[in-house]
Design a protein around this nucleic acid. Sequence first.
DNA 1: TCTGGGGTCCTAGGACCC
DNA 2: TCTGGGGTCCTAGGACCC
Length: 434
Amino acid sequence: MLALIDGNNFYVSCERIFRPDLRGLPVVVLSNNDGCAIARSDEAKALGIKMGAPWFKIQDLQEEAGLVALSANFELYGDISDRMMSLAAGLGHRQEIYSIDESFVDVTGIPGDLVERSRKIRARILQWTGIPSCIGMGPTKTLAKLANAIAKSAERKPGSYPAHHGQICHLGVQSPQELEDLLQATEVGEVWGVGRKIGAQLREGGIHTALDLQRMDPAAAKSGWSVVLEKTVRELNGVPCIAFDEAPRDKQQIASTRSFGHAVTELRDLEEAITEFVCRAAEKLRRQNSQAGQVLVFIRTSPFRKEAQYSKSAVFPLQAPSNDSSSLTEAALAVLHVIYKRGFKYAKAGVMLMDLQPLSRHQFTLDLEPDEPINNPNRIRLMHALDNVNGRYGRGTLNLASAGTAGEHRLWQMKQQRKTPGYTTRWEGLAEVR
DNA sequence: TCTGGGGTCCTAGGACCC
DNA sequence: TCTGGGGTCCTAGGACCC
């Protein structure tokens, strides 16, 4: 039996911990660059604000409805997430942290009333971190996710489900008839793994509810769509097909990409941005003790603007895998010089490190170059020092020269005009009590 | 004026091999 | 008239997730 614990409107709830004045108000958290809404309070949802709604299209609601918008403060959310996760882990014996606000917990064999136990954990999370959450339980991940969705709807949308499923919903203890009713009351698009496209195709084929999907022939799901949907069908029937992953696995690719605060036309500006992106990505790469075999760089104009469009990416296969910021930057800038075209207004760029492999693996080349910087102990120490300094004194304290200096005005720097302090992660962000 | 970022997995099709 | 069979590996693109 698996439980899925998930924070309600997580980013908004994090902000409300230190801004109790925001409770009861419509609040949204905006994506990087203050671009669009990526988290909404219940009150904001009630105003009809959709997930991903562009800020400039909803900002009138500030005046009209008292909407409050905040810039994303991921440092804060990450820290609150850690606290919530460690409390959620107490529900069972194994935990898989699935995203910043969700974790699966294996509650198989836990004695006693799981619903009661869940209520206690939920109450503890609320009291100790201030984050309201919902818990769903079922014999597979897909059913636990579904239970969680039911728990949320039963609380937020009265009448959608029987009220006693609010906050905690345990599908494992329902009678077959009750289970059928719950699945019948759930739209097929709510099912984990069914997105916009497949949802529309299913509805076209007469499959409208989770119950319809559960009763679908798995072979038909596979031949008509893919093995992914087949697994979903089986999971809805209580057959586990998606593994429980306790230990976070090494990433297979690491990306750093940004939309710019202002359109950028000059190569020099793009060089700065790309350098910074490589350094961010390389830092993550070193943190998981990996090295990259390939570097991808892309630049593109804004598809939303009516002007000349250009979008291009290219890959640089490294002669030997590396996690050295300057080697990777050198490769990335070489790619940039190839794909850059003058005369376009660039809106976004990014770097992806690919073909990742553990540091322990070393591929020897036939034509060893004598001045190969790879594995040079001094370079390794340098990267180590770089990470330590930036870890201690904050990101960007030490940078490669081609990243430019923060003092200069950087057109490409993203906009964040509504950011709350690092309440729990920075001394200067500590709240004062008077 | 203003539309996010970071991932995973699967599939189809091409290149290539014997 | 009639033009094999079986396999692997890689990549690009699509779909999904939060």
